[in-house]
Design a protein around this nucleic acid. Structure first.
Lengths: 266, 266
DNA sequence: CGGACCGTTCCAGGGAACGGAACATCGTCC
DNA sequence: GGACGATGTTCCGTTCCCTGGAACGGTCCG
């Protein structure tokens, strides 16, 4: 190979930073505590590299060293709390709690990222099929009421070219047909509310309403309940009232200058 | 300076990783969206360095670029959710929600890190002096009922040498005297419950109970309410029941092998 | 004892990171 | 208009941090 002509495309530089994030992402909810060797395998990095890197992460407080392995540090919670979305969460929490107290059902707050819903808060109840995804979880938007109502407030035109095909499915009830979804979105847009039955999880139904500021849906609130009970329209009204209240709080905060955020232009 | 003899002790190498974390920490709840120059000043790093570094962080999904500046990415929520503490949060949530519904008061879940309490969940209500610190916030342990009850379950002997002097104070009612605190901790330990009135925030009172597994307090639950009402002992009992239930859930999860965590030995 | 797994240390070479300086814009003030 | 200050951006030669294979020491089986 005297002069040039590399055999492999070099497979990207992979700086230390991306390796560090690969390591952090190697932790997941299935295995919250990992040994060095497990991390090495899960991330595909050589052991010696992992050793050096994770020692530094421990120094920096991003990872905690436990007797049986390594663990994501609670300090990350503090970092994550500084997301603008975290600010919205704090703002919305009292209203969400009130809705939960009044209805007795599960209550969720979420935003849209790309084609996923990201849960910011989730007040769950015992009974019911298990809450599954917790705070920070990402779910495909087409499978949840929250996702649909958020999609419905996007520009439906460029949405068509935007959404992934094939679309993900979580249960057999999930909407996967593009045209069908677009039609449903239009209905949701005009109704101002979205419903879903067992599309994200069997035995679970959900109804969602957007938090609208200046014609933008900056987030959405939802009530979820067992699929075999039917909640009256009282829930719809309470939901709308809650979303409106949160929107008002956000707008106040925004005009006070402390917020200034959100999906593109604002 | 012809040959050697550096004037400054070089002030530590400061690898790229620590710079990256300095940048991330430059975001705080007061300014959730920051421009490049603001970041440069807040972190003390040269502009060109910030520019190069933050571009990479955006690539990696740790930071989002907004029209008006940079913002911590919501992806961090997902990372932070993989803390073992996050697992405890998910486990405890239904019980916390039930306690909130039953009592109508604010409910908190927290763990101890060093001498601080770290809030894992906080279900707040409107009325009341404002919730202040949100999820992930760290508060000095001696100023809150949660902190005291967690301290009381540590080894009180080595605690004496452990705690910082002078101790922090948040209001004029905060306990700052070491001996007084140690005495109080012993009472709390035998009573199994801690109370606090306006020590962390004026107008706010709080009562807390530990989540005990194998004689270790892995966390604590609290109910907070306006300081000028007096809640009956019914709250005490409900709190104890809630904590016991959470402890049971943790123990189940632990014996199932999925948990395996927590303050030292376990 | 041999094997498998674990965590740890070492080292020389290469390439990523560094940050000062110069540049390109914008908005503002006289 | 023009000088100003603050912004975001690019360039580049030097430095030194990062790299990961290999070898070592430890523990726990069979």
């Amino acid at each position: 190979m005297s002069s040039g002509e590399r055999l492999v495309p070099a497979a990207e530089p992979t700086s230390i930073l991306s390796k560090a994030f690969d390591l952090m992402r190697a932790f997941n909810s299935d295995s919250r505590v990992m040994t060095l060797s497990e991390l090495s395998r899960a991330s595909g990095l050589p052991k010696s590299t992992v050793h050096r890197l994770i020692a530094r992460l421990v120094d920096l407080g991003a990872v905690e060293q436990h007797r049986t392995g390594y663990v994501v540090s609670v300090d990350l919670l503090q970092l994550a709390a500084n997301t603008p979305a975290g600010g919205m969460r704090d703002l919305a929490l009292p209203a969400l709690a009130a809705l939960h107290r009044w209805s007795g059902h599960g209550v969720q707050l979420a935003v849209l990222r790309q084609f996923d819903v990201v849960y910011l808060e989730k007040i769950a109840t015992h009974r019911m099929p298990a809450p599954r995804a917790g705070i920070g979880a990402r779910l495909p938007a087409n499978c949840t009421a929250l996702g649909k109502v958020l999609l419905a407030w996007e520009n439906i035109e460029d949405l068509d070219s935007f959404l992934p095909r094939p679309m993900s499915t979580m249960t057999t009830h999930s909407t996967t047909d593009v045209d069908e979804l677009l039609l449903e979105l239009q209905k949701i847009r005009s109704a101002g509310i979205a419903r879903e039955r067992e599309e994200s999880q069997l035995g679970l139904a959900c109804v969602a309403v957007p938090i609208v500021i200046h014609d933008f849906a900056v987030g959405a609130v939802a009530v979820s309940h067992s699929a075999d009970v039917d909640v009256g329209s009282g829930v719809d009204n309470a939901l709308r009232a809650t979303a409106a209240q949160i929107a008002r709080l956000c707008r106040d905060d925004l005009s006070r200058g402390k917020f200034r955020y959100f999906p593109r232009e604002l």
